[in-house]
């Protein structure tokens, strides 16, 4: 049963076709990976799904409901959250403040302009839990701007997670993280609750194959191959695309 579906999703930037007729179904509880060479349109798909971009054509269904016309924040409230390939954090807030913000927004306290942020016990409890889950305890009172990059990437996911999504879209969560901090990050991703559906974009094939139970390959904005990991791994066309890219590089 698909929790998230796209039907003929397309996006053009002037002459550039960044996504073309993407029809994709992501099953409930899946660990779904979206891979493809640089510039294939993976981030564009995430931007379309999360509402940052409006599609040129096509529809998006979340749990059977058409969300194509909704604003980003409305999609979050319906249970879909995302992370950003390039950090999009609140540099002047501490991780704790940022997480508490996301939690209190989800619990509907966002329009409360009279009580203090920490007054609701529920917010503090949940923020603490998320801080712990994402190993941010030792830096939670620092300004985000001065955190090590690995911690910032953790916070990226923590913020999305704080929205309690049923569908979580991760855009290259481990990109650029130094080896020393990488393990912590991967372990955290692996430990995400099983009932959260995850769509993962990643270039690191080891991570993709150890994590995903289904893989879609995107090339030049179009869906190229879609299937189980071993089937995709064996597909000669996928090999050709990736070998071609490696030769280019």
């Amino acid at each position: 049963m698909a929790i998230l579906e796209t039907i003929g999703l397309a996006k053009r930037f002037g002459g550039i076709v960044a996504a073309a007729d993407v029809t994709l179904a992501i099953d409930k509880g899946a660990r779904h990976a979206l891979i493809g060479p640089n510039g294939a349109g993976k981030t564009t798909v995430i931007n379309l799904l999360s509402g940052v971009l409006k599609p040129t054509a096509g529809r998006i269904l979340l749990e059977g409901r058409d969300i194509t016309a909704l604003d980003p924040h409305q999609r979050v409230r319906l249970g879909m959250a995302r992370t950003f390939q390039i950090n999009a954090l609140f540099l002047d807030l501490t991780p704790l403040e940022a997480i508490a913000l996301a939690v209190s927004e989800r619990l509907g306290f966002g329009i409360d302009c009279w009580r203090l942020v920490g007054r609701k016990g529920a917010v503090a409890d949940e923020a603490a839990e998320i801080v712990e889950r994402f190993h941010l305890g030792d830096v939670m009172h620092e300004r985000t701007a001065i955190l090590p990059y690995g911690k910032q990437r953790l916070l990226e996911i923590a913020l999305a997670f704080a929205c309690r999504p049923r569908v979580l879209l991760l855009d290259e969560p481990a990109a650029g993280v130094p080896e020393a901090e990488r393990h912590e990050l991967l372990a955290t991703i692996a430990a995400l609750p099983a009932d959260v559906t995850v769509l993962l974009i990643e270039h690191d094939m080891d991570l993709v194959f150890s994590f995903a139970d289904r893989i879609s390959v995107l090339v030049n904005g179009a869906l190229f191959v879609d299937g189980a990991p071993d089937a995709v791994a064996r597909d000669p066309r996928v090999k050709a695309v990736y070998l071609g890219e490696e030769l280019d590089a």
Binding site: S50, G51, V52, D71, P72, H73, V76, R77, A81, R82, F84, A88, L89, F90, L91, D92, L93, L101, A102, E105, R106, G110, L159, A160, A162, C163
Partner: peptide
């Protein structure tokens, strides 16, 4: 700080 991210946390 970041209006884009605000939308993404609801």
């Amino acid at each position: 700080g970041n209006a884009l991210r605000c939308g993404a946390v609801g």
